[in-house]
Structure formats: C-alpha cells, structure tokens
C-alpha cells in the first residue's frame, strides 16, 4: 500500500518493504558528453561492472542512470528496501555514495559541490518524483533474496550428491523433496 504523503516526508510508492526512488535532473549546458563519460566510467567501477552484484549500498535492488531528451535530462531510477527518505542523511554522510554522487551530479544543474550537504539534500529532494504506478514481480528485500540464493545454492549442492534422493526421504524433508524434481 502506498505510504501517504505528509508534511515531513515525500516517500515514493512502496510494494512490501521496497520503495521506488526516482530523481530527474537537468544536465548543465555543454556537459552532456562529460556526463556520458562519467557514466561510462561508473559502469566500470566495482559494483557497477555487469555481473558484480555488489553496489556500495546493500539495500538497493538495482540502479539505472538514463539520459534523455537529447542528453539534456538525467534520470536516476532505483528500488530501495525501506522508506528512502528515512535514510537520506545516511547517504549524504556515506563516503562511497557521496563520491558517486559527486562524479555524476556535478554535471547537473543545481549541484553546488561538496561538502554543502544542505544544498545537496535540497537538490535531491527537489529532483525526486514519486511514481504514478509501481509494481514488483518478487517479494523480499535484497538481504532476503541474497539469503535465498545462498540457501538454493546449498540445496543444489545437496541434490548433486548421489545419496541425495535417499537422504531426502525423511518426513521432515518433504518440502525440500517436493522442490527437488525439477
């Protein structure tokens, strides 16, 4: 259920524990190519390299930067576990996140540079737009999904054992046996 707007918060829509978070900026005139280059460089950093699956912020499901309107606009779109507005100041005081913000957002209008956190906060709040619709195809936080992956990897290892079928006959393991066939 979407969280209601109050004077103190401007949260995005949420599905279960996860909320959407989208920022829309105007690119500084003449900095389109610089921004593209910064994003190309970002894509090559740990956590952003395809297949890394390890962004600095462990509660983000995915993140994308989109240039649009002939590179005059930049969108940053992500899904986050928890209400993102509760964590804003944590991001602003986190080294890795600030460093990331700095290399990208220096190319957008309104960015005054570090370390003016009040200005940065105003910029982010001003750029945030709540989605008009939001849906998810799986439940669970990043932390839960990582745990599920670890458990499934362990389960597959068990199934690879020649004695697995015999071992899974125990009554207590029936739910696992039910998942073992395919």
């Amino acid at each position: 259920m979407p969280t209601s707007l109050t004077e103190t918060t401007r949260p995005g829509l949420s599905v279960g524990p996860t909320s959407e978070f989208s920022l829309f900026f105007h690119v500084k005139l003449g900095q389109e190519e610089g921004l593209r280059e910064a994003l190309r460089a970002l894509q090559d950093t740990p956590g952003y390299r395809p297949g890394d699956y390890g962004m600095a912020v462990a509660t983000i499901h995915e993140a994308r930067f989109v240039l649009f309107d002939n590179d005059t606009r930049l969108a940053f779109v992500t899904s986050f576990d928890g209400p993102w507005d509760a964590y804003m100041e944590d991001f602003f005081t986190s080294g890795p996140t600030l460093a990331l913000f700095d290399v990208i957002f220096r190319h957008v209008e309104g960015y005054e540079g570090l370390p003016d956190l009040a200005a940065l906060k105003a910029l982010i709040y001003g750029a945030q737009e709540t989605a008009a619709a939001y849906a998810r195809n799986y439940g669970g936080t990043v932390m839960e999904i990582r745990k599920q992956q670890r458990v499934n990897d362990a389960f597959q290892q068990v199934l690879d054992d020649p004695k697995a079928a015999e071992a899974l006959q125990h009554r207590a393991l029936k739910p696992l046996l039910d998942e073992a066939g395919a």
């Binding site: 600095a56 100041e89 944590d90 005081t93 996140t97």
Partner: peptide, 10 residues
C-alpha cells in the same frame, strides 16, 4: 557497517 546504507552515528 558493511551495508553502506546506514550511518549509525546519525
């Protein structure tokens, strides 16, 4: 500390 999303001092 390893989550990257929380600054406990805040």
């Amino acid at each position: 500390d390893n989550d990257g999303s929380v600054n406990v001092g805040l």
